[in-house]
């Protein structure tokens, strides 16, 4: 599949500080790519390089096959961007800002405008000074969703939205995917990424440490298993791939490496099983795995 965003060995240094170190990832056409990492890991720096606002120290970044720095004007006609912290002009109204952005992107006014304003419950006649953080974010969201872009870049777009608006936003992202648009979604809210994204990249200290579909990533980590039997499970601890066994009567809880699940089931089938529950790791588990102690990491 064609890559919409392609980043190769991207490095950005601010003086002595290396913000990004050899970052590699790509967003394919028609997919929603989740970009996750803690504060200060380099998400916004990466996005700003993609927008041609910062200049990469080394490496290459392209959008639609064009260089993000030198061809930024061409690229920007086909992208829409929503920052996490939206700064607007206090003395312009939300409606004026939306019109201005549409014009600067080179688009005509569309009739969807009213629908979207209604959908996000945004009053366009209010000055930006009076908007809360969430409402300023809505201005940027409505403006982005109005555009006929091919790539949408969202940098923590829902950090100020209420759960209802978050849901509206998630619906809109799904609609975008159905229309064949590509989305780069940087977020803290892992459940949101989990719901929306086809593939995920995890960044830490300026380096991408994991990249792939959720399925692929899950494969690298442990499932949570709950097992209830009528008799004692002797030797469960010795089964390869089983970790952290805890027992409460005949109820056992433990973790299993995904690739060794088969052996566990074979072992358990020797006993009379009353209940077997297995939960795949959530994105949060995946994420935490990289940031907590290394002893849990499955090599």
């Amino acid at each position: 599949m064609e890559n919409v965003v392609d980043i190769k060995r991207l490095t950005k240094r601010f003086g002595d500080f290396t913000a990004l170190n050899q970052v590699d990832f790509s967003v394919k056409k028609g997919e929603v790519f989740g970009f996750i990492g803690p504060n200060g890991a380099g998400k916004s720096t990466t996005i700003r390089i993609l927008l041609g606002i910062l200049k990469a120290t080394e490496g290459q970044a392209t959008i639609f096959g064009k260089d993000v720095w030198s061809d930024s004007m061409e690229i920007h006609k086909r992208i829409a961007y929503v920052p996490g912290d939206v700064n607007l002009w206090p003395n312009l109204t939300g409606g004026e800002v939306i019109d201005l952005f549409a014009k600067l992107r080179g688009e005509r006014q569309t009739k969807q405008r009213e629908d979207l304003l209604q959908r996000y419950k945004l009053d366009p006649t209010k000055k930006c000074r009076t908007y809360s953080k969430g409402n300023r974010q809505k201005v940027a969201l409505v403006s982005a969703l109005l555009s006929e872009a091919d790539l949408y870049i969202f940098d923590e777009p829902t950090s100020g939205l209420d759960p209802l608006m978050e849901q509206t936003f998630q619906e809109d992202v799904r609609n975008l995917r159905e229309e064949g648009k590509s989305v780069l979604l940087s977020s803290h809210i892992l459940s949101e990424v989990e719901k929306l994204c086809d593939r995920v990249g995890i960044i830490r200290d300026g380096t991408i440490i994991e990249q792939g579909s959720l399925e692929e990533l899950r494969h690298l980590t442990r499932h949570h298993v709950l097992l209830e039997t009528t008799s004692n499970l002797d030797g469960l601890d010795d089964v390869e791939g089983v970790h952290d066994v805890s027992r409460d009567g005949n109820t056992y809880r433990f973790q299993v490496n995904a690739e060794q699940m088969d052996q566990v089931i074979k072992f358990a089938s020797q006993y009379s099983i009353q209940k077997f529950e297995s939960a795949p790791p959530t994105l949060e588990d995946l994420f935490m795995r990289h940031y907590e102690g290394t002893d849990e990491v499955v090599e």
Binding site: I53, M73, H76, A80, N87, G106, I153
Partner: peptide, 14 residues
């Protein structure tokens, strides 16, 4: 400095 240019430069403005 007030981070208001980011949104503009994300459009087709040089």
């Amino acid at each position: 400095k007030k981070s208001r240019l980011e949104l503009l430069y994300a459009k087709s403005v040089s």
